[in-house]
Amino acid sequence: MVNKILFIAALIMMLAILLTLYRFFKGTTAADRLVAFDVMTVSSLSLIGLIAKFSDRIIYLDVAMVYGLLSFLGVIIVARYFEKGL
C-alpha cells in the first residue's frame, strides 16, 4: 500500500521535472532558464529523498544536503553575474 503510493508520487515528480525541462528548452530569456533550473533542482531534491527510502540507506540523505547547498550556490552565482558582475 505505502510502496504503491510512493511509486505514484515518484512518477508525478518525474512529470514535473519534464515540464520544467520544457520551459528550460523554450524559455525566451536567460532569466527564464535560470528559474527553470532552480525549480528543476528543488524537485529532484525530493526525488532523492524517495530514492533513499526505497533503497533503505540513511547515507543517501547526506547527498541530498550537499545537492541542495550546491544548487543554491549556483543560482546565487549566476544572479550576481547578471546584476553587476561577480
Binding site: S55, D56, R57, I58, I59, Y60
Partner: peptide, 9 residues
Amino acid sequence: RTAPILDEA
C-alpha cells in the same frame, strides 16, 4: 547490491 559504506544497514 548496495553502496560500499559500512554502517548498521
